[in-house]
């Protein structure tokens, strides 16, 4: 029911754009608040719709998946949460899907954050993954199957010091358990003892710093999930195999959810994302149509 109404409304929105186009081209552009309403509708209405969007998994996402598939059960994965709540809509779905995958494949997860908010967002992701029935049945134990090392200040200098010893920067975990008393960390000295590093990043410090220090200096194997703002900048690393796989923005999240078969928010939101892009594209076209008519008149 809600879905039908939303679809009808969305069609109406599309039709009314024609009027806006007419107005703009004839030199009477609408106020920006009208534009605001359009974008709000384009994002909100699809949330009520149940259309399946055909998500296509791209090679960058596949590469991450392949790298993960190579890990044997029991492998240790270091996941760094380097983002804050504003970027959560893009990165949290990746985090949740990654956690679900890791727990279902018996990977041991070590969580940390270079951003102060990171460990708390990690807790949220773990909470959500634990709600999954299959994972709940495993009765995973904190400190043995996963651990949250918490946050440390120092940005890229934290990675630098971790190259010698994790313990130096994380003398206790987020729950204030001493490093040496955490069974999972018993034989983990530095990057050479973790099998894979996964970094969720929305800026600095983030993937760029991890590649520069953990990968190029200390030889870690790494994959990353980035906000779409940052993703284009790390493509050169991907080509040079400094990165094994990249999830970029909401579409990257949706693709990852598809390939690991853990549909979540990324898949739900991709429809809104699609309509939002459509509106932006249409607005650029309308604006430019007006621009060129104007220019022609002047000539």
């Amino acid at each position: 029911m809600a879905s039908t109404i939303a679809t009808i409304l969305l069609i109406l929105v599309g039709v009314s754009l024609l009027y806006i186009a007419y107005r703009t081209i004839t030199g009477r552009p609408v106020e920006r608040r009208i534009v605001f309403i359009y974008i709000a509708l384009a994002v909100a209405l699809p949330l009520f719709m149940t259309l399946p969007a055909p998500v296509q998994v791209t090679p960058d996402v596949e590469r991450l998946y392949d790298a993960l598939e190579e890990l044997r059960p029991g492998s240790k994965v270091l996941v760094s949460f380097d983002y804050d709540p504003p970027s959560a809509p893009e990165l949290q779905p990746m985090a949740v899907a990654f956690m679900k995958y890791a727990f279902k494949h018996d990977l041991r997860v070590i969580v940390m954050g270079l951003w102060p908010q990171g460990p708390q967002l990690a807790n949220l992701a773990i909470e959500e993954a634990m709600a999954d029935q299959e994972i709940a049945a495993k009765n995973l134990e904190y400190g043995v199957d996963y651990v949250n090392l918490g946050f440390q200040s120092g940005n890229e200098f934290v990675i630098q010091a971790m190259g010698t010893q994790f313990k130096r920067m994380f003398p206790q975990d987020d729950r204030r358990i001493p490093y040496d008393s955490i069974p999972l960390m018993a034989n983990v000295t530095n990057f050479s003892n973790v099998d894979f590093v996964f970094n969720l990043s929305s800026g600095k410090p983030g993937t760029i710093e991890w590649v520069q220090i953990a990968v190029d200096r200390f030889g870690a194997t790494m994959g990353a999930g980035n906000t779409a703002v940052q993703a284009p900048q790390v493509y050169p690393y991907l080509r040079a195999k400094q990165l094994h796989g990249l999830l970029g923005g909401m579409s990257g999240a949706a693709e990852f959810e598809k390939i690991v078969e853990e549909p979540g928010d990324g898949t739900t939101f991709i429809l809104s994302q699609m309509f939002a892009h459509a509106i932006v594209i249409l607005f650029v076209i309308i604006g430019n149509a007006a621009f060129f008519t104007e220019r022609r008149k002047q000539e």
Binding site: V43, A44, L47, G249, Q273
Partner: peptide, 18 residues
């Protein structure tokens, strides 16, 4: 990509509200 990112932020808030 930046447009994609900005739209995602809004989607997050909308989904919180609704």
């Amino acid at each position: 990509y930046t447009v994609m990112s900005r739209m995602s932020l809004l989607i997050g808030r909308m989904s919180f509200l609704f």
